[in-house]
Amino acid sequence: MGPFPVQPSGLVSIPFRYLVGWLGSRWDRRLRPVASRENRRLYEESEARLLAAAE
């Protein structure tokens, strides 16, 4: 065993997994506004029907 308490593969895979997770979280944020706009448009189309049924 070397001077570190982890295997050499861990020295590469752990930072790599962290980087991939961070990139995934950034990618998800880019897609959210598109989905949010689409959801808002769908809600606005059905809002009148939803409110009329509540009376």
Rank of each mutant, 00 (worst) to 15 (best):
50 L>G: 00
50 L>E: 01
28 D>E: 15
38 E>F: 13
30 R>F: 10
20 V>R: 08
1 M>T: 01
54 A>N: 00
46 S>K: 05
35 A>G: 06
30 R>H: 08
11 L>C: 15
1 M>F: 07
8 P>G: 06
8 P>T: 06
18 Y>C: 11
39 N>S: 12
4 F>E: 05
44 E>C: 02
21 G>M: 09
2 G>N: 11
14 I>W: 02
44 E>M: 08
16 F>G: 10
16 F>W: 14
24 G>W: 02
3 P>A: 10
22 W>K: 13
51 L>Q: 01
8 P>M: 08
2 G>H: 09
11 L>S: 12
27 W>D: 14
14 I>Q: 05
37 R>Y: 01
18 Y>A: 15
35 A>W: 03
10 G>T: 00
48 A>D: 00
1 M>I: 00
37 R>K: 10
23 L>K: 06
53 A>K: 05
39 N>M: 12
55 E>N: 09
18 Y>E: 09
6 V>W: 10
46 S>D: 03
20 V>D: 02
27 W>Y: 15
28 D>S: 15
30 R>K: 09
26 R>C: 12
37 R>T: 04
23 L>Q: 08
12 V>N: 07
40 R>F: 02
10 G>R: 00
5 P>N: 07
53 A>G: 03
16 F>K: 15
48 A>P: 00
15 P>Y: 02
38 E>I: 15
42 L>N: 05
38 E>M: 13
37 R>W: 04
21 G>R: 11
41 R>T: 06
14 I>S: 03
39 N>A: 15
49 R>Q: 05
45 E>V: 06
45 E>Y: 05
19 L>N: 02
47 E>G: 01
